[in-house]
Design a protein around this nucleic acid. Structure first.
Length: 571
RNA sequence: CGGGGCGUGGCGCAGUCCGGUUAGCGCGCGCGGUUUGGGACCGCGAGGUCGAAGGUUCGAAUCCUUUCGCCCCGACCA
Protein backbone atom coordinates (compact mmCIF):
# COMPACT_ATOMS: atom_id res chain seq x y z
CA UNK A 1 0.00 0.00 0.00
CA UNK A 2 1.36 3.39 -0.99
CA UNK A 3 0.99 6.19 1.52
CA UNK A 4 0.62 8.66 -1.33
CA UNK A 5 -2.71 7.13 -2.25
CA UNK A 6 -3.77 5.93 1.19
CA UNK A 7 -7.13 7.21 2.30
CA UNK A 8 -6.83 8.45 5.84
CA UNK A 9 -3.30 9.72 6.08
CA UNK A 10 -1.71 10.41 9.44
CA UNK A 11 -2.38 13.88 10.79
CA UNK A 12 -0.66 15.18 13.86
CA UNK A 13 -3.09 17.96 14.59
CA UNK A 14 -6.07 15.67 14.75
CA UNK A 15 -7.53 14.73 18.12
CA UNK A 16 -4.65 16.30 20.02
CA UNK A 17 -6.68 16.82 23.16
CA UNK A 18 -8.09 13.31 23.42
CA UNK A 19 -7.40 12.08 26.92
CA UNK A 20 -6.97 8.40 26.18
CA UNK A 21 -3.72 7.41 24.43
CA UNK A 22 -5.30 4.81 22.17
CA UNK A 23 -8.01 7.25 21.15
CA UNK A 24 -5.49 9.95 20.23
CA UNK A 25 -2.96 7.68 18.54
CA UNK A 26 -5.50 5.72 16.51
CA UNK A 27 -7.02 9.00 15.34
CA UNK A 28 -3.75 10.74 14.52
CA UNK A 29 -2.24 7.72 12.82
CA UNK A 30 -5.30 7.34 10.59
CA UNK A 31 -6.88 4.15 11.88
CA UNK A 32 -10.21 5.57 12.98
CA UNK A 33 -12.31 8.68 12.65
CA UNK A 34 -15.21 9.64 14.81
CA UNK A 35 -18.67 9.85 13.30
CA UNK A 36 -20.83 10.88 16.25
CA UNK A 37 -20.30 10.10 19.91
CA UNK A 38 -19.47 6.44 20.30
CA UNK A 39 -19.64 5.62 16.59
CA UNK A 40 -16.51 5.35 14.52
CA UNK A 41 -15.43 4.97 10.96
CA UNK A 42 -12.73 2.34 10.62
CA UNK A 43 -10.25 3.61 8.02
CA UNK A 44 -8.16 1.40 5.71
CA UNK A 45 -5.37 0.99 8.26
CA UNK A 46 -7.89 0.33 11.03
CA UNK A 47 -9.78 -2.36 9.19
CA UNK A 48 -6.51 -4.18 8.45
CA UNK A 49 -5.80 -4.55 12.15
CA UNK A 50 -9.44 -5.30 12.91
CA UNK A 51 -9.41 -8.09 10.32
CA UNK A 52 -6.24 -9.58 11.77
CA UNK A 53 -7.71 -9.66 15.24
CA UNK A 54 -10.85 -11.28 13.87
CA UNK A 55 -8.81 -13.89 12.05
CA UNK A 56 -6.94 -14.84 15.19
CA UNK A 57 -10.12 -15.06 17.21
CA UNK A 58 -11.76 -17.13 14.48
CA UNK A 59 -8.80 -19.49 14.28
CA UNK A 60 -8.90 -20.29 17.97
CA UNK A 61 -12.69 -20.51 18.13
CA UNK A 62 -12.66 -23.03 15.30
CA UNK A 63 -9.83 -24.94 16.92
CA UNK A 64 -11.93 -25.15 20.08
CA UNK A 65 -14.73 -26.72 18.08
CA UNK A 66 -17.02 -23.71 17.77
CA UNK A 67 -18.85 -23.16 14.50
CA UNK A 68 -19.32 -19.80 12.83
CA UNK A 69 -22.74 -18.51 11.83
CA UNK A 70 -24.24 -15.11 11.18
CA UNK A 71 -27.40 -13.95 12.86
CA UNK A 72 -29.68 -11.08 11.87
CA UNK A 73 -28.89 -7.75 13.43
CA UNK A 74 -32.57 -6.95 13.92
CA UNK A 75 -33.99 -9.18 16.62
CA UNK A 76 -37.76 -9.72 16.84
CA UNK A 77 -38.77 -7.90 19.99
CA UNK A 78 -40.95 -10.86 21.10
CA UNK A 79 -37.78 -12.81 21.78
CA UNK A 80 -36.52 -10.21 24.21
CA UNK A 81 -39.94 -10.09 25.82
CA UNK A 82 -39.85 -13.85 26.21
CA UNK A 83 -36.87 -13.54 28.56
CA UNK A 84 -38.03 -10.30 30.13
CA UNK A 85 -34.92 -8.54 28.98
CA UNK A 86 -36.84 -5.60 27.55
CA UNK A 87 -36.92 -4.45 31.18
CA UNK A 88 -33.85 -5.95 32.82
CA UNK A 89 -31.00 -5.19 30.46
CA UNK A 90 -28.28 -2.90 31.72
CA UNK A 91 -27.90 -1.21 28.40
CA UNK A 92 -30.83 0.51 26.80
CA UNK A 93 -32.17 -1.50 23.89
CA UNK A 94 -32.33 0.29 20.57
CA UNK A 95 -35.68 -0.37 18.95
CA UNK A 96 -36.87 -0.18 15.38
CA UNK A 97 -40.28 -0.60 13.78
CA UNK A 98 -40.66 -1.65 10.18
CA UNK A 99 -43.37 -0.41 7.81
CA UNK A 100 -45.76 -3.16 8.82
CA UNK A 101 -45.43 -2.22 12.47
CA UNK A 102 -43.26 -5.18 13.49
CA UNK A 103 -40.98 -4.30 16.41
CA UNK A 104 -37.32 -5.18 16.47
CA UNK A 105 -34.44 -4.64 18.81
CA UNK A 106 -31.08 -3.76 17.36
CA UNK A 107 -29.02 -6.61 18.70
CA UNK A 108 -26.80 -5.79 21.67
CA UNK A 109 -26.12 -9.43 22.48
CA UNK A 110 -27.82 -12.48 21.03
CA UNK A 111 -28.71 -15.16 23.59
CA UNK A 112 -32.37 -15.17 22.57
CA UNK A 113 -31.52 -15.34 18.89
CA UNK A 114 -29.21 -18.28 19.46
CA UNK A 115 -31.88 -20.16 21.40
CA UNK A 116 -34.45 -19.29 18.77
CA UNK A 117 -32.18 -20.56 16.03
CA UNK A 118 -31.45 -23.79 17.85
CA UNK A 119 -35.11 -24.55 18.59
CA UNK A 120 -35.86 -24.39 14.89
CA UNK A 121 -34.01 -27.71 14.66
CA UNK A 122 -35.00 -31.06 15.99
CA UNK A 123 -32.00 -31.84 18.13
CA UNK A 124 -31.05 -35.07 19.86
CA UNK A 125 -28.56 -35.71 22.64
CA UNK A 126 -26.32 -37.17 19.94
CA UNK A 127 -25.92 -33.67 18.51
CA UNK A 128 -24.66 -32.26 21.80
CA UNK A 129 -22.64 -30.39 22.71
CA UNK A 130 -22.23 -27.61 20.18
CA UNK A 131 -21.09 -24.04 20.26
CA UNK A 132 -22.11 -21.47 17.64
CA UNK A 133 -20.55 -18.07 17.24
CA UNK A 134 -20.58 -15.01 15.02
CA UNK A 135 -18.90 -11.72 14.39
CA UNK A 136 -21.51 -9.01 14.17
CA UNK A 137 -22.23 -5.40 14.89
CA UNK A 138 -23.68 -4.89 18.34
CA UNK A 139 -25.71 -1.86 19.28
CA UNK A 140 -25.86 -0.43 22.75
CA UNK A 141 -27.40 2.86 23.64
CA UNK A 142 -24.67 3.57 26.17
CA UNK A 143 -25.36 6.47 28.43
CA UNK A 144 -21.90 7.78 27.83
CA UNK A 145 -19.43 6.64 25.25
CA UNK A 146 -15.83 7.33 26.17
CA UNK A 147 -12.21 6.75 25.36
CA UNK A 148 -12.41 6.30 21.61
CA UNK A 149 -12.88 2.62 20.82
CA UNK A 150 -12.86 1.64 24.49
CA UNK A 151 -16.54 2.25 25.02
CA UNK A 152 -18.74 2.82 22.00
CA UNK A 153 -22.36 2.48 20.92
CA UNK A 154 -21.70 0.24 17.92
CA UNK A 155 -19.00 -2.38 17.80
CA UNK A 156 -18.17 -5.74 16.32
CA UNK A 157 -18.33 -8.48 18.87
CA UNK A 158 -17.48 -12.11 18.57
CA UNK A 159 -20.27 -13.78 20.51
CA UNK A 160 -20.54 -17.52 21.02
CA UNK A 161 -23.33 -19.59 22.55
CA UNK A 162 -22.89 -23.15 23.72
CA UNK A 163 -25.63 -25.72 24.10
CA UNK A 164 -25.03 -28.88 26.07
CA UNK A 165 -26.07 -31.02 28.99
CA UNK A 166 -25.16 -29.81 32.44
CA UNK A 167 -22.50 -32.53 32.69
CA UNK A 168 -20.88 -31.51 29.42
CA UNK A 169 -20.81 -27.82 30.20
CA UNK A 170 -17.68 -27.59 32.29
CA UNK A 171 -15.56 -28.93 29.47
CA UNK A 172 -16.87 -26.35 27.04
CA UNK A 173 -16.33 -23.55 29.52
CA UNK A 174 -12.77 -24.68 30.04
CA UNK A 175 -12.19 -25.01 26.31
CA UNK A 176 -13.34 -21.44 25.82
CA UNK A 177 -11.16 -20.30 28.69
CA UNK A 178 -8.17 -21.95 27.08
CA UNK A 179 -9.06 -20.58 23.66
CA UNK A 180 -9.25 -17.06 25.12
CA UNK A 181 -5.89 -17.42 26.79
CA UNK A 182 -4.44 -18.52 23.45
CA UNK A 183 -6.16 -15.69 21.58
CA UNK A 184 -4.87 -12.93 23.81
CA UNK A 185 -1.44 -14.45 23.92
CA UNK A 186 -1.27 -14.50 20.14
CA UNK A 187 -2.53 -10.92 20.10
CA UNK A 188 0.45 -9.96 22.22
CA UNK A 189 -1.62 -9.04 25.24
CA UNK A 190 -1.23 -9.81 28.90
CA UNK A 191 -4.60 -10.50 30.43
CA UNK A 192 -5.83 -11.39 33.88
CA UNK A 193 -8.74 -13.80 34.15
CA UNK A 194 -11.06 -12.38 36.74
CA UNK A 195 -14.19 -13.80 38.35
CA UNK A 196 -17.01 -11.36 37.79
CA UNK A 197 -20.70 -10.65 38.07
CA UNK A 198 -23.17 -11.93 35.49
CA UNK A 199 -25.31 -8.82 35.57
CA UNK A 200 -28.12 -8.66 33.07
CA UNK A 201 -26.78 -11.62 31.09
CA UNK A 202 -27.97 -14.01 33.79
CA UNK A 203 -26.47 -17.24 35.07
CA UNK A 204 -24.38 -17.89 38.15
CA UNK A 205 -20.72 -17.35 37.39
CA UNK A 206 -18.52 -15.82 34.75
CA UNK A 207 -15.00 -14.64 34.08
CA UNK A 208 -13.70 -11.49 32.54
CA UNK A 209 -10.50 -11.30 30.55
CA UNK A 210 -8.93 -8.02 31.52
CA UNK A 211 -6.00 -6.23 29.93
CA UNK A 212 -4.33 -4.42 32.78
CA UNK A 213 -3.98 -0.68 32.34
CA UNK A 214 -4.54 2.69 33.95
CA UNK A 215 -7.36 3.61 31.62
CA UNK A 216 -9.38 0.51 32.28
CA UNK A 217 -12.85 0.79 33.70
CA UNK A 218 -12.80 -2.57 35.43
CA UNK A 219 -11.53 -2.58 39.00
CA UNK A 220 -10.49 -5.92 40.34
CA UNK A 221 -8.44 -7.59 43.05
CA UNK A 222 -5.68 -10.12 42.78
CA UNK A 223 -4.01 -12.32 45.33
CA UNK A 224 -0.67 -12.62 43.63
CA UNK A 225 0.38 -15.62 45.64
CA UNK A 226 -2.57 -17.89 44.99
CA UNK A 227 -3.74 -16.38 41.70
CA UNK A 228 -7.15 -15.53 43.12
CA UNK A 229 -8.58 -12.77 40.92
CA UNK A 230 -12.00 -11.21 41.20
CA UNK A 231 -13.82 -8.16 39.95
CA UNK A 232 -14.60 -5.68 42.69
CA UNK A 233 -18.28 -6.55 42.29
CA UNK A 234 -17.74 -10.10 43.47
CA UNK A 235 -14.40 -10.13 45.29
CA UNK A 236 -14.57 -11.86 48.65
CA UNK A 237 -12.12 -11.66 51.50
CA UNK A 238 -11.37 -13.12 54.89
CA UNK A 239 -12.99 -11.19 57.69
CA UNK A 240 -11.11 -10.84 60.92
CA UNK A 241 -12.95 -11.45 64.19
CA UNK A 242 -12.90 -8.44 66.47
CA UNK A 243 -14.17 -8.70 70.03
CA UNK A 244 -16.16 -11.92 70.03
CA UNK A 245 -14.89 -12.85 73.48
CA UNK A 246 -16.53 -9.83 75.07
CA UNK A 247 -19.69 -10.28 77.12
CA UNK A 248 -22.89 -8.89 75.62
CA UNK A 249 -23.66 -5.74 77.56
CA UNK A 250 -27.04 -4.16 78.11
CA UNK A 251 -28.23 -2.04 75.20
CA UNK A 252 -28.58 1.61 76.12
CA UNK A 253 -29.84 4.83 74.60
CA UNK A 254 -27.52 7.77 74.65
CA UNK A 255 -27.90 11.43 73.71
CA UNK A 256 -25.76 12.06 70.67
CA UNK A 257 -25.16 15.62 69.52
CA UNK A 258 -23.24 14.66 66.43
CA UNK A 259 -23.16 14.99 62.67
CA UNK A 260 -24.36 12.25 60.36
CA UNK A 261 -21.02 10.72 59.31
CA UNK A 262 -19.24 7.63 60.57
CA UNK A 263 -16.36 9.76 61.85
CA UNK A 264 -18.79 11.80 63.91
CA UNK A 265 -19.87 8.60 65.63
CA UNK A 266 -16.31 7.49 66.31
CA UNK A 267 -15.44 10.85 67.82
CA UNK A 268 -18.51 11.03 70.01
CA UNK A 269 -18.27 7.53 71.45
CA UNK A 270 -14.52 7.15 71.47
CA UNK A 271 -14.90 3.62 70.10
CA UNK A 272 -13.33 2.00 67.04
CA UNK A 273 -14.88 2.40 63.62
CA UNK A 274 -15.36 -1.34 63.27
CA UNK A 275 -17.61 -1.39 66.30
CA UNK A 276 -19.99 1.08 64.72
CA UNK A 277 -22.88 -0.11 62.59
CA UNK A 278 -23.10 1.24 59.08
CA UNK A 279 -26.67 1.40 57.78
CA UNK A 280 -27.30 2.24 54.15
CA UNK A 281 -30.82 2.59 52.87
CA UNK A 282 -31.73 1.87 49.26
CA UNK A 283 -34.88 1.70 47.23
CA UNK A 284 -35.36 -0.84 44.47
CA UNK A 285 -37.44 0.67 41.68
CA UNK A 286 -37.93 -2.73 40.07
CA UNK A 287 -39.54 -4.50 43.01
CA UNK A 288 -40.73 -1.39 44.89
CA UNK A 289 -39.04 -2.28 48.15
CA UNK A 290 -36.71 -0.54 50.53
CA UNK A 291 -33.49 -2.39 51.18
CA UNK A 292 -31.65 -1.57 54.40
CA UNK A 293 -28.07 -2.79 54.20
CA UNK A 294 -26.31 -3.16 57.53
CA UNK A 295 -22.58 -3.71 57.70
CA UNK A 296 -19.57 -3.33 59.99
CA UNK A 297 -18.45 0.30 60.17
CA UNK A 298 -15.02 -0.21 58.63
CA UNK A 299 -16.45 -1.87 55.51
CA UNK A 300 -18.40 -0.57 52.54
CA UNK A 301 -21.54 -1.96 50.97
CA UNK A 302 -21.01 -3.67 47.63
CA UNK A 303 -24.14 -2.75 45.72
CA UNK A 304 -23.69 -5.44 43.11
CA UNK A 305 -23.56 -8.15 45.75
CA UNK A 306 -26.47 -6.52 47.55
CA UNK A 307 -28.64 -6.47 44.43
CA UNK A 308 -27.88 -10.08 43.72
CA UNK A 309 -28.52 -11.28 47.26
CA UNK A 310 -31.64 -9.18 47.77
CA UNK A 311 -33.05 -9.90 44.33
CA UNK A 312 -33.10 -6.22 43.41
CA UNK A 313 -32.65 -4.96 39.87
CA UNK A 314 -32.76 -1.23 39.95
CA UNK A 315 -31.26 0.00 43.19
CA UNK A 316 -30.86 3.63 44.12
CA UNK A 317 -30.10 5.44 47.34
CA UNK A 318 -33.15 6.39 49.36
CA UNK A 319 -33.76 10.12 49.66
CA UNK A 320 -33.71 12.04 52.93
CA UNK A 321 -37.45 12.58 52.60
CA UNK A 322 -38.07 8.87 52.24
CA UNK A 323 -35.96 8.16 55.31
CA UNK A 324 -37.67 10.79 57.43
CA UNK A 325 -41.26 10.86 56.24
CA UNK A 326 -41.93 7.39 54.98
CA UNK A 327 -39.73 5.37 57.31
CA UNK A 328 -39.75 7.57 60.42
CA UNK A 329 -35.99 7.51 60.77
CA UNK A 330 -33.22 10.07 60.41
CA UNK A 331 -30.30 10.29 57.98
CA UNK A 332 -27.12 9.48 59.88
CA UNK A 333 -29.05 7.78 62.67
CA UNK A 334 -30.62 4.83 60.88
CA UNK A 335 -30.60 1.65 62.92
CA UNK A 336 -32.09 -1.81 62.29
CA UNK A 337 -33.24 -2.01 65.93
CA UNK A 338 -36.99 -1.38 65.87
CA UNK A 339 -36.78 -0.29 62.27
CA UNK A 340 -40.16 0.04 60.60
CA UNK A 341 -41.20 -2.89 58.39
CA UNK A 342 -42.97 -0.79 55.80
CA UNK A 343 -43.31 2.76 54.57
CA UNK A 344 -45.85 4.85 56.51
CA UNK A 345 -47.08 6.70 53.46
CA UNK A 346 -46.21 4.41 50.60
CA UNK A 347 -46.68 1.05 52.26
CA UNK A 348 -43.57 -0.23 50.48
CA UNK A 349 -42.01 -3.11 52.43
CA UNK A 350 -38.55 -2.91 53.97
CA UNK A 351 -36.09 -5.77 53.75
CA UNK A 352 -33.13 -5.71 56.13
CA UNK A 353 -29.94 -7.31 54.84
CA UNK A 354 -27.10 -7.96 57.28
CA UNK A 355 -23.56 -8.42 56.12
CA UNK A 356 -21.84 -11.42 57.63
CA UNK A 357 -19.20 -9.10 59.07
CA UNK A 358 -21.70 -8.27 61.81
CA UNK A 359 -20.94 -11.73 63.23
CA UNK A 360 -17.38 -10.66 64.03
CA UNK A 361 -18.17 -7.98 66.57
CA UNK A 362 -20.24 -7.52 69.74
CA UNK A 363 -21.70 -4.52 71.51
CA UNK A 364 -21.96 -2.32 68.46
CA UNK A 365 -23.07 1.27 68.48
CA UNK A 366 -25.07 3.39 66.08
CA UNK A 367 -28.11 5.59 65.65
CA UNK A 368 -31.55 5.13 67.16
CA UNK A 369 -33.72 6.30 64.24
CA UNK A 370 -33.98 9.74 65.84
CA UNK A 371 -31.90 12.84 65.46
CA UNK A 372 -29.20 13.08 68.11
CA UNK A 373 -30.01 9.76 69.72
CA UNK A 374 -27.67 6.76 69.61
CA UNK A 375 -27.71 3.20 70.87
CA UNK A 376 -24.76 1.37 72.39
CA UNK A 377 -24.18 -2.33 72.96
CA UNK A 378 -26.34 -3.43 70.05
CA UNK A 379 -26.14 -7.17 69.42
CA UNK A 380 -27.55 -8.98 66.45
CA UNK A 381 -30.17 -11.69 67.21
CA UNK A 382 -30.74 -10.33 70.71
CA UNK A 383 -31.69 -6.79 69.71
CA UNK A 384 -32.63 -7.11 66.05
CA UNK A 385 -33.11 -9.74 63.38
CA UNK A 386 -32.21 -9.29 59.73
CA UNK A 387 -34.45 -10.66 56.98
CA UNK A 388 -31.39 -11.88 55.16
CA UNK A 389 -27.76 -12.49 56.03
CA UNK A 390 -25.20 -12.47 53.26
CA UNK A 391 -21.84 -11.25 52.09
CA UNK A 392 -22.56 -7.75 50.82
CA UNK A 393 -19.17 -6.22 51.57
CA UNK A 394 -16.79 -4.49 49.19
CA UNK A 395 -13.22 -5.77 49.18
CA UNK A 396 -10.40 -3.25 49.60
CA UNK A 397 -6.67 -3.32 48.91
CA UNK A 398 -4.66 -4.94 51.66
CA UNK A 399 -7.42 -7.26 52.83
CA UNK A 400 -6.75 -10.99 52.84
CA UNK A 401 -8.04 -13.00 49.94
CA UNK A 402 -10.01 -16.21 50.58
CA UNK A 403 -6.67 -17.97 50.00
CA UNK A 404 -4.91 -15.89 52.60
CA UNK A 405 -2.69 -13.63 50.46
CA UNK A 406 -2.91 -9.86 50.33
CA UNK A 407 -5.39 -8.41 47.85
CA UNK A 408 -3.87 -6.00 45.36
CA UNK A 409 -6.09 -3.60 43.47
CA UNK A 410 -5.77 -3.40 39.70
CA UNK A 411 -7.52 -1.66 36.85
CA UNK A 412 -7.95 -2.94 33.37
CA UNK A 413 -9.90 -3.07 30.17
CA UNK A 414 -12.40 -5.89 29.89
CA UNK A 415 -11.73 -7.31 26.46
CA UNK A 416 -13.60 -10.58 26.70
CA UNK A 417 -15.67 -12.70 28.95
CA UNK A 418 -17.13 -16.15 29.38
CA UNK A 419 -20.46 -16.76 31.07
CA UNK A 420 -22.13 -19.76 32.54
CA UNK A 421 -25.79 -19.28 31.70
CA UNK A 422 -27.09 -22.61 32.90
CA UNK A 423 -30.81 -22.98 32.37
CA UNK A 424 -31.45 -19.26 32.65
CA UNK A 425 -32.59 -18.78 29.06
CA UNK A 426 -33.86 -22.26 28.37
CA UNK A 427 -36.18 -21.97 31.36
CA UNK A 428 -37.53 -18.65 30.15
CA UNK A 429 -37.91 -19.60 26.50
CA UNK A 430 -40.31 -22.26 25.32
CA UNK A 431 -39.15 -25.37 23.47
CA UNK A 432 -35.46 -24.81 24.26
CA UNK A 433 -35.11 -28.56 24.50
CA UNK A 434 -33.45 -31.59 22.97
CA UNK A 435 -34.40 -35.26 23.16
CA UNK A 436 -32.37 -37.39 25.56
CA UNK A 437 -31.48 -41.11 25.44
CA UNK A 438 -34.85 -42.09 26.89
CA UNK A 439 -36.77 -40.03 24.40
CA UNK A 440 -37.78 -37.33 26.85
CA UNK A 441 -37.35 -33.60 26.35
CA UNK A 442 -34.58 -31.84 28.28
CA UNK A 443 -33.57 -28.23 28.58
CA UNK A 444 -30.23 -27.13 27.24
CA UNK A 445 -27.54 -25.98 29.60
CA UNK A 446 -25.97 -22.88 28.09
CA UNK A 447 -22.93 -20.69 28.15
CA UNK A 448 -21.98 -17.57 26.22
CA UNK A 449 -18.63 -16.08 25.34
CA UNK A 450 -17.87 -12.58 24.02
CA UNK A 451 -14.90 -10.64 22.74
CA UNK A 452 -15.14 -7.00 21.65
CA UNK A 453 -12.93 -6.66 18.60
CA UNK A 454 -12.65 -2.88 18.51
CA UNK A 455 -12.06 -2.64 22.22
CA UNK A 456 -9.39 -5.30 21.96
CA UNK A 457 -7.75 -3.25 19.22
CA UNK A 458 -7.73 -0.19 21.47
CA UNK A 459 -6.50 -2.23 24.43
CA UNK A 460 -3.55 -3.43 22.37
CA UNK A 461 -2.64 0.18 21.65
CA UNK A 462 -3.05 1.07 25.32
CA UNK A 463 -0.56 -1.64 26.17
CA UNK A 464 1.83 -1.06 23.25
CA UNK A 465 2.80 2.53 22.58
CA UNK A 466 5.34 5.17 23.44
CA UNK A 467 5.33 8.94 23.17
CA UNK A 468 5.93 8.74 19.42
CA UNK A 469 3.11 6.43 18.55
CA UNK A 470 1.83 2.91 18.40
CA UNK A 471 4.07 -0.17 18.58
CA UNK A 472 1.99 -2.96 17.05
CA UNK A 473 2.68 -6.56 17.96
CA UNK A 474 3.63 -8.37 14.75
CA UNK A 475 0.54 -10.55 14.73
CA UNK A 476 -1.85 -7.63 14.29
CA UNK A 477 0.23 -4.86 12.71
CA UNK A 478 -1.44 -3.23 9.69
CA UNK A 479 1.72 -4.07 7.74
CA UNK A 480 5.05 -5.57 8.68
CA UNK A 481 7.29 -3.01 6.98
CA UNK A 482 7.26 0.74 6.60
CA UNK A 483 9.34 1.52 3.53
CA UNK A 484 10.48 5.14 3.59
CA UNK A 485 11.97 6.63 0.49
CA UNK A 486 14.19 9.57 1.38
CA UNK A 487 15.27 11.85 -1.40
CA UNK A 488 13.80 12.30 -4.81
CA UNK A 489 16.63 11.36 -7.12
CA UNK A 490 15.67 9.16 -10.01
CA UNK A 491 17.89 6.37 -8.82
CA UNK A 492 16.55 6.37 -5.27
CA UNK A 493 13.01 6.34 -6.56
CA UNK A 494 13.72 3.44 -8.86
CA UNK A 495 15.41 1.40 -6.15
CA UNK A 496 12.63 2.08 -3.69
CA UNK A 497 9.91 1.28 -6.23
CA UNK A 498 11.68 -1.93 -7.09
CA UNK A 499 12.05 -2.97 -3.45
CA UNK A 500 8.36 -2.25 -2.92
CA UNK A 501 7.46 -4.55 -5.82
CA UNK A 502 9.80 -7.24 -4.55
CA UNK A 503 8.28 -7.13 -1.06
CA UNK A 504 4.80 -7.41 -2.52
CA UNK A 505 5.86 -10.40 -4.61
CA UNK A 506 7.15 -12.07 -1.48
CA UNK A 507 3.88 -11.37 0.31
CA UNK A 508 5.53 -9.13 2.82
CA UNK A 509 2.93 -6.59 3.81
CA UNK A 510 4.43 -3.16 3.22
CA UNK A 511 3.44 0.46 3.66
CA UNK A 512 5.42 2.40 1.09
CA UNK A 513 5.97 6.04 1.96
CA UNK A 514 6.49 7.34 -1.55
CA UNK A 515 5.36 10.85 -0.73
CA UNK A 516 7.47 13.82 -1.65
CA UNK A 517 7.87 14.72 1.99
CA UNK A 518 10.79 15.51 4.19
CA UNK A 519 12.55 12.78 6.17
CA UNK A 520 11.37 14.03 9.52
CA UNK A 521 7.75 13.73 8.50
CA UNK A 522 8.23 10.21 7.19
CA UNK A 523 10.03 9.03 10.30
CA UNK A 524 7.42 10.62 12.51
CA UNK A 525 4.59 8.95 10.61
CA UNK A 526 6.38 5.61 10.63
CA UNK A 527 6.67 5.83 14.41
CA UNK A 528 3.09 7.00 14.76
CA UNK A 529 1.62 4.20 12.67
CA UNK A 530 3.92 1.81 14.43
CA UNK A 531 4.51 -1.13 12.11
CA UNK A 532 7.25 -3.49 13.33
CA UNK A 533 10.01 -2.58 10.83
CA UNK A 534 11.14 0.55 9.08
CA UNK A 535 13.25 0.28 5.96
CA UNK A 536 14.96 3.34 4.48
CA UNK A 537 16.08 3.84 0.90
CA UNK A 538 17.93 7.12 0.47
CA UNK A 539 20.20 9.01 -1.88
CA UNK A 540 23.06 8.27 0.47
CA UNK A 541 22.42 4.56 0.58
CA UNK A 542 21.68 3.77 -3.07
CA UNK A 543 25.27 4.14 -4.13
CA UNK A 544 26.36 1.46 -1.65
CA UNK A 545 23.34 -0.70 -2.56
CA UNK A 546 22.43 -0.98 1.11
CA UNK A 547 19.17 -0.66 2.93
CA UNK A 548 18.67 0.56 6.44
CA UNK A 549 16.53 -1.50 8.79
CA UNK A 550 15.20 -0.45 12.16
CA UNK A 551 12.71 -2.16 14.41
CA UNK A 552 9.97 -0.01 15.91
CA UNK A 553 10.69 0.49 19.56
CA UNK A 554 14.43 0.06 19.12
CA UNK A 555 17.09 2.59 18.20
CA UNK A 556 19.43 0.18 16.47
CA UNK A 557 20.04 0.77 12.78
CA UNK A 558 21.28 -2.01 10.55
CA UNK A 559 22.71 -1.64 7.06
CA UNK A 560 21.83 -4.64 4.98
CA UNK A 561 22.08 -5.82 1.39
CA UNK A 562 18.82 -6.61 -0.31
CA UNK A 563 19.13 -10.36 0.20
CA UNK A 564 19.97 -9.92 3.87
CA UNK A 565 17.05 -7.58 4.24
CA UNK A 566 14.60 -9.92 2.56
CA UNK A 567 15.77 -12.83 4.66
CA UNK A 568 15.29 -10.83 7.82
CA UNK A 569 11.84 -9.55 6.89
CA UNK A 570 10.63 -12.96 5.80
CA UNK A 571 11.46 -14.50 9.16
C1' C B 1 -30.30 11.03 33.58
C1' G B 2 -27.63 14.64 37.07
C1' G B 3 -23.29 18.26 37.34
C1' G B 4 -19.57 21.22 34.44
C1' G B 5 -17.76 23.00 29.58
C1' C B 6 -18.16 23.81 24.25
C1' G B 7 -20.32 24.36 18.95
C1' U B 8 -16.95 30.03 14.13
C1' G B 9 -13.31 26.94 6.63
C1' G B 10 -10.68 19.80 7.05
C1' C B 11 -8.20 20.45 12.31
C1' G B 12 -6.96 23.84 16.57
C1' C B 13 -8.57 28.54 18.13
C1' A B 14 -9.57 34.38 18.58
C1' G B 15 -13.80 37.53 18.14
C1' U B 16 -19.41 36.92 21.90
C1' C B 17 -19.30 40.03 28.17
C1' C B 18 -20.26 45.76 25.81
C1' G B 19 -24.47 44.30 18.45
C1' G B 20 -21.83 48.41 13.85
C1' U B 21 -17.35 48.13 7.46
C1' U B 22 -15.28 42.93 3.67
C1' A B 23 -15.47 37.48 10.30
C1' G B 24 -9.47 37.01 11.74
C1' C B 25 -5.02 33.74 13.14
C1' G B 26 -2.11 29.04 13.19
C1' C B 27 -1.95 24.10 11.07
C1' G B 28 -3.45 21.55 6.88
C1' C B 29 -4.85 21.86 1.43
C1' G B 30 -3.63 23.70 -4.09
C1' C B 31 0.06 26.07 -7.51
C1' G B 32 5.27 27.95 -8.35
C1' G B 33 10.15 28.03 -6.47
C1' U B 34 14.26 26.97 -2.96
C1' U B 35 14.97 22.56 0.12
C1' U B 36 15.68 16.94 1.65
C1' G B 37 18.37 11.76 7.60
C1' G B 38 13.64 13.54 12.78
C1' G B 39 7.41 17.25 11.35
C1' A B 40 11.85 23.29 6.40
C1' C B 41 11.21 28.15 3.92
C1' C B 42 9.44 32.11 0.36
C1' G B 43 5.50 33.80 -2.82
C1' C B 44 0.57 33.26 -4.62
C1' G B 45 -4.27 30.98 -3.93
C1' A B 46 -8.81 28.25 -2.68
C1' G B 47 -11.97 27.37 1.29
C1' G B 48 -16.79 29.91 6.32
C1' U B 49 -25.42 30.36 5.29
C1' C B 50 -20.43 31.63 12.62
C1' G B 51 -24.59 23.95 14.88
C1' A B 52 -30.14 24.68 13.58
C1' A B 53 -34.92 27.26 13.96
C1' G B 54 -37.57 31.39 15.58
C1' G B 55 -37.43 36.33 17.74
C1' U B 56 -35.55 41.56 19.14
C1' U B 57 -33.14 45.49 16.12
C1' C B 58 -31.97 50.25 11.03
C1' G B 59 -28.18 46.38 11.78
C1' A B 60 -26.90 39.84 15.07
C1' A B 61 -21.23 35.18 15.25
C1' U B 62 -22.42 38.72 19.37
C1' C B 63 -28.84 39.89 22.79
C1' C B 64 -33.57 36.56 23.88
C1' U B 65 -36.35 31.75 23.24
C1' U B 66 -36.40 26.87 21.55
C1' U B 67 -33.75 22.85 19.69
C1' C B 68 -29.78 19.56 18.00
C1' G B 69 -24.89 17.91 18.70
C1' C B 70 -20.04 17.26 21.04
C1' C B 71 -16.40 16.95 25.28
C1' C B 72 -15.31 16.05 30.64
C1' C B 73 -17.08 13.94 35.73
C1' G B 74 -20.78 10.24 37.97
C1' A B 75 -24.68 5.60 37.66
C1' C B 76 -23.61 0.90 32.99
C1' C B 77 -20.24 -2.88 29.83
C1' A B 78 -17.19 -6.40 24.92
Amino acid sequence: MRISTLFGKPSKNEGVDYKIDSHRLLTQAGFIRESTAGRYYLLPLGIKVHDKIEAIVRKHMNAAGAQEVVMPVLHPLELWQETNRTTTTGFELMKITDRRGADFALGGTAEEMAVDLVRKFNISYKDLPFNIYQFSMKFRDEMRARGGLLRVREFVMKDAYSFSTEEQFKKIYEAMWKAYVAIFEELGMKVDVVAADNGYIGGEYCHEFVSEGENGESRYFIDEKSGYAAHEDVATFKIDDKNLDDREEKMEERKAERGPTMEDGVKLHGLPLWQQMKDVLYFDEATKRYVLAVIRGDLDVNETKLMQKAGAWDLRSATEEEIRDDLASEPGFICPVNFTKKGKETGFPVIIVADKSLRTVKNMYGGANQKHLDLTNINIDRDWQPDLEADIAMAAPGMLSPDGGKLVEKRGIEVGNIFQLGYHYTNLMHDAEYTDEKGTRQKYYMGCYGIGIGRTLAAIVEAHHDDRGIIWPKAVAPASVYLARLGVSKETTEVADKLYETLLERHIDVLYDDRDARPGEKFADADLIGVPYRVVVSDKLVTSKKFELKARGSDTLELLTQSELLAKLAS
